[in-house]
């Protein structure tokens, strides 16, 4: 049987199982720690750092840190709200995020974090880099202007034989998400939909359908991101 441990987040007493990732343990206790690259039950990538918390005085990514007995975690402190806001702002200026013209608008995790932290304008200058769109595969658009390099698609989306359909190419500022054209041609509608759904932003888009839900009925129109986790527990 797994060992039960106790820890605190911003002073709140929490329980988890030993070895459970902090971000998941927090969610089970009704505490929302924001994520962009993390997905439960997936090997952590730890690439976006939006989940940064302070554990016993040190900054750690909550999606790569296992919960341990007696941990004192700082989460919603002014310091961390500002760090996270800065990360969101950085992601906005690094890509080209024209929300008014984006199919994911209203359902986008990055945008929803912008709302949560009341980003009115990024503190950093816009990069306005040119990035190419890949529309060559039958089911999917790759709108690279919006990719935040979370690697979810690379880690989750496989063909029937377990081969990756998505992959990164390049490094640093030449890093680019790519799609294997041959394998992509075999993608079913379900896989294409799944790829679009797990992409936290509007980079992976299913062709021939868009703007399905009208404004007012989208995921984050009235419900701040994370409120499902916070409301589920007391």
């Amino acid at each position: 049987m797994s060992e039960t441990i106790k820890f605190t987040i911003d002073g709140k007493e929490c329980q988890g199982t030993k070895g459970q990732l902090l971000v998941d343990a927090a969610a089970d206790n009704g505490v929302y720690i924001p994520v962009l690259c993390h997905m439960r039950d997936l090997i952590p990538a730890g690439s976006c750092r939006i989940c940064t918390v302070k554990v016993n005085g040190r900054n750690m990514a909550a999606c790569t840190t296992p919960a341990e007995e007696g941990m004192a975690v700082e989460n919603n402190t002014p310091e961390f709200l500002d760090i996270r806001k800065a990360i969101v702002e950085m992601l906005f200026v690094e890509g080209n995020h024209f929300c008014p013209a984006c199919e994911k608008s209203g359902n986008c995790d990055l945008q929803a974090l912008g709302y949560k932290y009341q980003m009115m304008v990024p503190r950093f200058p816009y990069a306005f880099e040119r990035r190419e769109i890949d529309a060559t595969t039958p089911k999917i658009f790759l709108e690279r202007n919006r990719c935040i390099f979370c690697k979810r698609c690379v880690r989750v989306i496989k063909d029937e034989e377990g081969r990756n359909i998505f992959a990164f190419k390049g490094r640093g500022n030449t890093l680019e998400i790519n799609i294997d054209r041959k394998l992509a041609a075999t993608m079913t509608d379900e896989i294409a939909q799944k790829a679009m759904d797990i992409c936290p932003v509007g980079c992976i888009l299913k062709k021939e359908i868009g703007f399905v839900n009208p404004i007012g009925q989208r995921k984050y129109d009235t419900m701040p991101i994370g409120s499902d986790i916070e409301n589920n527990h007391q």
């Binding site: 995020h97 024209f98 013209a101 306005f128």
Partner: peptide, 14 residues
């Protein structure tokens, strides 16, 4: 958005 980040006219940026 146009005043804040260029908006749709800034699609030409880059």
């Amino acid at each position: 958005e146009c005043a804040i980040m260029g908006g749709l006219p800034a699609l030409r940026n880059g």
